[in-house]
C-alpha cells in the first residue's frame, strides 16, 4: 500500500490487489466552514443544556454549577470525537460540507485515531484562531492539520457514488454507422481513448450543460470525428451533430 498526493489535492491509494483508487481531499476553507458549523452546534447544545441545568441550580446550586462546568468541558473536548466515532468520521458540520475523516491509508478509522486527532486540536489552535493548524493544513501535502498528522488521518470530500447511466446513452438507439463495419473499425483505430472518453462524458452530462454550449460542443466534436473517418452520405444524412457523436460513441464502445 502506498499513498501520495498530486497537485489536485487527491490521495492515491494502491491496494495489495494491485489497484489504485483516489480520494479527493478537503481543503482548508471547506474544513473551516465545517468547523464553524460545528462551533455553532456546540454553542446551541450548550445553551440548550444550560436552559435545563439553570432551574436545577435554584434548588441545588452546587450541583447545577458543577454540571455546567462538566457539560462545557465535555462538549469542547468530546463533541467532535463522539460524532466521528458514531457517524463514520463525520460531525454535523462535516456532514453539511460533505466531508469525512478517514485513515490516511484508506482503512477504517480507529477509535484511537479519533481520540488523538481531536485532543491534539489544542496544539492546532495555537496561538489563536487555529493559526498553527491552518498553516500546517495549507502547506501539508495531504491537507492535514497537526492532529491529522499525529493520528494518521485525512479529511476527504464525499463524491457522488452511483453508477452512470451509460445504458441510457448507448442503449436502444438506431445507429446508421453499423451498416459499415469496416469504417467503424477504422474509427476505433483513429479515435484516441481520450477523445472517446470525452465524447462519452459529453453525452452522459448533456443535461447538465447550457443549451448553447451543448450545440457548440457537439458541433466541434462531430467536425473532429468527420475529419477522422468519412462515412457515406446515406449514413450521415439528416443526422444532427449530437446524433453523429452518439453514433460514433456507440461504434467505439460496442463490440461484436
Amino acid at each position: 500500500m502506498s499513498a501520495a498526493r498530486n497537485s489536485t489535492a487527491t490521495l492515491h491509494i494502491s491496494t495489495p490487489e494491485g489497484v489504485v483508487f483516489s480520494l479527493p481531499l478537503a481543503g482548508p476553507v471547506t474544513r473551516a466552514i465545517g468547523f464553524f458549523i460545528d462551533y455553532a452546534v456546540i454553542m446551541a447544545v450548550q445553551n440548550a443544556l444550560m436552559f435545563v441545568i439553570t432551574p436545577l441550580a435554584i434548588f441545588m446550586q452546587d450541583f447545577g454549577a458543577a454540571a455546567g462546568v462538566l457539560v462545557q468541558f465535555m462538549l469542547t473536548f468530546g463533541y467532535a470525537g463522539f460524532c466521528e466515532l458514531l457517524f463514520n468520521g463525520q460531525t454535523l458540520g462535516k456532514r453539511v460540507m460533505r466531508i469525512r475523516v478517514m485513515d490516511e491509508r484508506g482503512l477504517r478509522l480507529r477509535p484511537s485515531q479519533v481520540i488523538v486527532r481531536n485532543l491534539v486540536r489544542i496544539a492546532d489552535m495555537l496561538p489563536m484562531a487555529y493559526a498553527v493548524g491552518g498553516l500546517f493544513c495549507l502547506f501539508s501535502r495531504r491537507c492535514q492539520r497537526l492532529g491529522d498528522f499525529a493520528a494518521g488521518t485525512v479529511v476527504v470530500r464525499e463524491v457522488k457514488a452511483t453508477a452512470p447511466d451509460v445504458e441510457g446513452v448507448l442503449g436502444g438507439k438506431y445507429n446508421s454507422f453499423r451498416a459499415y463495419p469496416h469504417l467503424e473499425a477504422r474509427l476505433r483505430q483513429k479515435v484516441s481513448p481520450d477523445e472517446a472518453q470525452l465524447a462519452l462524458a459529453a453525452l452522459v452530462r448533456r443535461e447538465q450543460l447550457e443549451s448553447e454550449a451543448t450545440i457548440k460542443l457537439f458541433e466541434l466534436m462531430a467536425t473532429r470525428f468527420r475529419e477522422k473517418v468519412k462515412f457515406p452520405d446515406e449514413a450521415d444524412f439528416g443526422l444532427s451533430d449530437e446524433q453523429y457523436v452518439r453514433n460514433v460513441v456507440d461504434s467505439l464502445y460496442r463490440k461484436g
Binding site: 491509494i13 491496494t15 495489495p16 489497484v19 483508487f21 483516489s22 480520494l23 478517514m102 485513515d103 484508506g106 482503512l107 477504517r108 463524491v159 457522488k160 457514488a161 452511483t162 453508477a163 452512470p164 451509460v166 481513448p193 481520450d194 472517446a196 472518453q197 462519452l200 462524458a201 452522459v204 464502445y253
Partner: peptide, 24 residues
Amino acid sequence: ANAEPELRTYLEMLVGRGYAEIHS
C-alpha cells in the same frame, strides 16, 4: 480503457469502501 469518468469515480468509491472494510 480510459472509460467514462463517472463510472471510474463510482468504482473507485466502491473499491475504497470495500478496501476499508475488508482490510480493517
